[in-house]
């Protein structure tokens, strides 16, 4: 359903992805792990054509989206729901209009049915009676949930979750985890979950990849990850300060410094 083939992406000489390849099957729950700044959000943006790779192919349902123009992309994007890391709610619209926006814009349902659905998702996400509040008045965790509501309202085939539980209290985080599992089991939705929350990962994922230095260094099922003796996995899962991982920011800085030196010489 989603396939990355040797995808490279860099920003101003900083190479973020260096040959990323993986395949996600229909109905699967796919978790992407990695340290801050390793390119997880970039990977999700590549998947929806918001960013273009420098090299490589990204295939969605048999179509290479790197070659598509706007109208073609629009068609592919209908399959996706995207929960942005920052929420990305439209600040000029109230909650109801934010959530209903994708349905209203595409005139897919009559107004009454849209309202019905907005009520339904607000209920599921514990946001009752917030229809007329503006995004600026919400807490971070609430924004995230509203954003999730907007991502699922069109009943997409694929949902991309960028850190769905970050900033939520443990109870709400669990609600969201159950929701992700539920959406997959009931509606056979394909999910791609980027997260730092190991509990959430083990709960929702069928398969996990771990990114480091622009590539996949480890992949496997949650069971394989749980008790793995592998030093990379162990360090990441247990969050140990000492281990084979180097800091991504430090790597970037190093790259910058060595890059500068070469320029000067």
């Amino acid at each position: 359903m989603i396939e990355f083939i040797d995808v490279h992406k860099s920003f101003n000489s900083h190479e973020v992805l260096k040959g990323l390849s993986f395949k996600i099957n229909r109905g699967e729950s796919f978790a992407i792990l990695g340290r801050s700044g390793c390119g997880k959000s970039v990977t999700l943006k590549l998947m929806t054509g918001l960013l273009k790779p420098d090299r490589g192919q990204i295939i969605i349902d048999g179509i290479d989206i790197t070659k598509l123009e706007n109208s073609g992309l629009a068609k592919i994007r209908k399959k996706f729901g995207f929960l942005f890391q920052s929420g990305a709610l439209l600040n000029s619209l109230n909650i109801e209009n934010n959530i209903a926006l994708p349905l209203r814009e595409h005139k897919e349902l009559p107004e009454a049915a849209i309202m019905e659905r907005v009520k339904e998702v607000l209920n599921i996400l514990g946001l009752k009676h917030l229809e007329h509040v503006m995004p600026a008045e919400l807490s971070g965790g609430m924004k995230k949930r509203v954003s999730l509501a907007r991502a699922i309202i069109r009943r997409p085939e694929i949902i991309l979750y960028d850190e769905p539980t970050t900033g939520l209290d443990p109870i709400m985080a669990n609600v969201i985890n159950h929701l992700i599992v539920d959406l997959r089991e009931r509606l056979k939705i394909t999910s791609v979950v980027v997260t730092h929350d190991m509990k959430s990962t083990f709960m929702v994922a069928d398969r996990i990849i771990l990114l480091y230095r622009g590539q996949i260094i480890r992949s496997g099922t949650p069971d394989e990850f749980k008790d793995s003796p592998d030093p990379f996995i162990k360090q990441f899962v247990l969050g140990e300060p000492k281990g084979p991982f180097q800091d991504e920011d430090e790597l970037k800085l190093q790259e910058k410094l060595t890059g500068k030196k070469e320029e000067n010489n």
Binding site: T48, A74, F80, F84, A88, N91, E105, R154
Partner: peptide
């Protein structure tokens, strides 16, 4: 809107 990813969100919603 651009720097807070709102424009990206619009594009993903095919708007």
């Amino acid at each position: 809107m651009k720097v807070s990813e709102e424009i990206d969100a619009l594009e993903v919603m095919s708007i």
